Simulated scan of single mutants.
Amino acid sequence: MKDCKNCGWDEHDTLVPSSAKTDIERLIAEANLARMRGDLNGAIDLCTEALDIEPHNADVHSLLGDIYKTMDNQTEAARWYQMALDINPNSKSDQAKLQEALAAASKKKRANSNSPTNNWLQPVDKLDRAIRYFVLFCAAAVMVLLIIGLTTWLINSRKENKAPTESPTPKTESVENVQSKTVSAPPVESPIIGEPEGGTLIRPLAEQTLLSKLATNPTIQQEKLVIEDVKIDPRTDGIEITMRFSDKPTALTHIVIRKAAAVAATAAYGASDDAKMVTVRTLVSMPGEYASGEPKLAHICDIPRDIVSVNISGADDAVLSRIFVKEWWNSEIGL
């Protein structure tokens, strides 16, 4: 029996129950989503939970390395990349990440060692040591005296200004006057897309997993699309996607928006075998009166699973319009 020196994994024990694999995939998806949203500590907690289930999962170790790299803790990132390679020595990506993290950590260490701040307390001789300690002692004494003086001044000021005050008798107003002074509450603004009024969005696990898969889909990233929200209707096995362009296209036309919607729908069908219909809502930012405001809803359509057999890049407007169902265009934008 041979164990990994870092994580203690028995290399002969490779059988993991299918239920545990499902839990690990869920935790990895949630950790990726938390990392993308900037919740790095939450992502670390999810990875730790995954390692409790399967300590020898190389993907989790590599993901922890990515998280610590984002936190600019290159030394810790290198440690997790090394553990991932101990489990899967053939991973080219982890090898590259390890070399990059080690180089960054070495460069940071050299920069810190050359900093004048780090060398200030390193005396040249005994006399130099005594002088520097005396300066530190004097600075500390001055700070203590300043704090004592400030505290004494505040106490004396409160004593001088403290005087008995009579609480005024509150006036009793009639019900009519109170009602006449009542100000109507301002209208509540509608919440931002994908976020509830209360603040943090509570999303079902299936929607979290689908959102993570779509956000990391290579084709969606290549087309520079941003998935704002995903909803799943279990009654109809339907998926609703709200998306926008990360960069404004050079020419914003019907065919551009239709192809973007087709890409999103194809990715959704690829991530969900149970989906029967995908509804795509496309937001756009337009010049003129829309330039400084929130993106506007430009297009809604239902796209059946037939779209997966279409060559989207080579499809023209007529082909896509025949497949799309219940299309709606915002006439105010004027595409």
Rank of each mutant, 00 (worst) to 15 (best):
M143Q: 08
V144G: 04
V144P: 01
L145P: 11
L146Y: 04
L146N: 03
L146F: 07
I147H: 03
I147K: 04
I148G: 00
I148N: 00
I148F: 02
G149S: 08
G149D: 03
L150G: 09
L150I: 05
T151D: 04
T152H: 09
T152K: 11
T152Y: 10
T152F: 10
T152L: 12
W153D: 12
W153Q: 11
L154F: 15
L154C: 13
I155K: 07
N156M: 15
S157Y: 09
R158M: 09
R158D: 06
R158Y: 08
K159I: 15
K159E: 14
E160N: 15
E160L: 15
E160D: 15
E160V: 15
N161Q: 12
K162V: 05
A163N: 13
A163M: 15
A163H: 14
A163K: 15
P164K: 03
P164R: 02
P164W: 05
P164S: 09
P164G: 08
T165L: 08
E166M: 08
E166T: 10
E166C: 06
P168W: 02
P170V: 05
P170G: 00
P170Q: 00
P170K: 01
K171Q: 06
K171I: 14
T172G: 00
E173I: 11
S174D: 04
S174G: 03
V175I: 14
V175T: 14
V175D: 14
E176L: 12
E176G: 07
E176H: 10
N177Q: 14
N177M: 10
N177H: 11
Q179S: 08
Q179W: 10
Q179P: 05
Q179C: 10
Q179H: 08
S180L: 13
S180M: 11
S180P: 02
S180T: 14
K181G: 06
T182C: 06
V183S: 07
V183H: 03
S184C: 00
S184Y: 02
S184E: 07
S184G: 01
A185W: 08
A185C: 09
P186Q: 04
P186E: 02
P186A: 05
P187I: 03
V188R: 13
V188P: 07
E189C: 07
E189Q: 12
E189G: 10
S190H: 12
S190Y: 13
S190I: 14
P191I: 07
P191T: 09
I192Y: 08
I193K: 10
I193W: 09
I193T: 13
I193H: 09
I193S: 10
I193V: 15
I193F: 09
I193P: 05
G194F: 01
G194N: 00
E195L: 15
P196W: 00
P196D: 03
P196M: 04
P196H: 04
E197V: 10
E197H: 10
G198L: 07
G198D: 02
G199V: 08
G199L: 06
T200F: 11
L201Q: 13
L201M: 13
L201D: 13
L201H: 13
I202H: 08
R203L: 11
R203M: 12
R203E: 15
L205A: 07
L205K: 05
A206S: 13
E207D: 02
E207A: 02
E207Y: 00
E207R: 00
E207F: 01
Q208V: 05
Q208L: 03
T209Q: 11
L210K: 02
L210M: 05
L210N: 01
L211S: 14
L211F: 14
S212Q: 03
S212T: 04
S212I: 03
S212G: 01
K213D: 13
